[in-house]
Design a protein around this nucleic acid. Sequence first.
DNA 1: ATGCCTTGTCGCACAAGA
Length: 260
Amino acid sequence: MKIATWNINGVKARIDTVVTWLANATPDVVCLQEIKSLDEGFPGSAFEDLGYTVATHGQKGFNGVAILSKLPIDDVRRRLPGDDGDEQARYIEADVVSGDSVVTVASIYLPNGNPIGTEKFAYKLAWMQRLEAHARDRLSHEMPLVMAGDYNVIPEPADARNPDAWREDALFQPESRSAWRALTALGFTDATRACDPAGQVYTFWDYQAGAWNKNHGIRIDHMLLSPQAADRLISSGIDRDTRGWEKPSDHVPVWIELSA
DNA sequence: ATGCCTTGTCGCACAAGA
């Protein structure tokens, strides 16, 4: 069972790119972020034609997350609990039926939080607290759980080509990294690091200043696995080449393979 | 020190991203 996550930076601008990647990568489940589309404007038929069931949680212009699945989806839950006043579409989770087991898959678009010292950074940290509380609740079920997406957190200096360039950035603040550690310490496995402990692997390169050509990347797209999912982890990878395609997203896909 | 690009919403720029 192959599960992937990709921040596509606009589903309408990226539809051909995503369809091409899907046809080659053939994931069973895909978490998308930054669809930048209302649910009713989401081009679901392009994915249904490839055999995917589509679940979206969108909003106008910004944010928006989705889950595509070739396997049956039992239940879909939208919005991160903990703040009924939060109107930003950044969380969707679904129970995916795989043979005799059910795997809960969450598609996460964690707030960027820049610039630091503003309400945006406070929103990011509050959102991370809500995510930790929700993750703690989900983990208590002791079921396979994969929380995948754009976390907008650089966990360690090794996760940036030039860590010093990110010292003042919300993605690399001590508070952001501390919240990440508190989340993972609940018992999650960082799939990319579990499979490639020392790798210089990045998932994002800015459109600006030739970041891709200079490999000035950061690792901010992550797949966190509950113990019951980690027990089934076979392999993990990053489809780095998509960043060099025509009309690329600034993020690239991250994926895992779980045993049946 | 700042912008560097890209997208979407409209509108003849701007916000937001990271």
